[in-house]
């Protein structure tokens, strides 16, 4: 009896996978593979002042989703970059931030669950310093700040839906704000909290054909 049950389970599993496979192959749009990017620095701490205040260079790190590469700061006034990071602030290449067609909004849901950007979605643009397409502040956009333990944690179930500089679409899930890709424990040392912060690990999917489907 037990054996029969096992065989049946096996059969069900095989059948299910066959069905799943056939579904994939018949899809009209090729699925976009998600790419994970590790430890992108975002204006990291370079030292401490005599008063013990952390020092940073105050510069954004620019990133091209199309090329999957960091864009040099000299190209900041171009449409070569799609998003830029400085501490917890993320810019898109449009509005007050750039010359591109960029914009964004924060979607609540799962990365894989967002197959098509809803047609009624509104892409916001940066309007510095009052508002940004990706809302800043704890609990409002993509992260929460725990003041007691001094930790930034990316909110689970948030997808940054991006319109790139050239008007294509991409989706991003931020995984971590700390070097190594894992949020530090509350018990981590102050030095670690200071020096390992401002490193983004995220995964993204970029749709090069201009459609809103991933």
């Amino acid at each position: 009896m037990k054996k029969a049950l096992q065989s049946f389970t096996l059969l069900v599993v095989i059948l299910t996978s066959v069905v799943a496979c056939s579904k994939d192959t018949t899809a009209t749009v090729l699925p976009i593979t998600a790419i994970t990017v590790n430890d992108i620095p975002a204006d990291t701490v370079v030292g401490l002042s005599a008063q013990g205040i952390p020092i940073t260079n105050g510069k954004y790190t620019f990133y091209s989703l199309e090329k999957n590469a960091i864009v040099p700061n000299t190209d900041s006034a171009s449409t070569k970059w799609d998003i830029a990071f400085m501490a917890t602030r993320i810019l898109t290449n449009g509005g007050t931030s750039g010359t591109g067609l960029g914009g964004a909004f924060v979607y609540t849901g799962l990365f894989d669950g967002l197959k098509t950007i809803p047609t009624d979605s509104v892409f916001k643009t940066d309007n510095a310093p009052t508002s940004y397409a990706i809302t800043t502040g704890s609990g409002k956009g993509w992260y929460t700040y725990d003041g007691l333990n001094n930790l930034i944690t990316p909110l689970a179930g948030r997808v940054l839906v991006i319109k790139t500089a050239s008007g294509k679409y991409a989706k991003i899930e931020i995984i971590s704000y700390y070097k190594g890709g894992v949020t530090l424990p509350a018990s981590a040392s102050d030095a670690d909290k200071l020096n390992k912060q401002r490193y983004y690990t995220f995964r993204f999917a970029y749709q090069p054909n201009g459609s809103k489907t991933f």
């Binding site: 929460t144 725990d146 944690t153 689970a156 179930g157 949020t183 424990p185 509350a186």
Partner: peptide, 8 residues
């Protein structure tokens, strides 16, 4: 003790 995985 601490909420660390991004939900409330």
């Amino acid at each position: 003790v601490n909420n660390t995985n991004g939900n409330e």
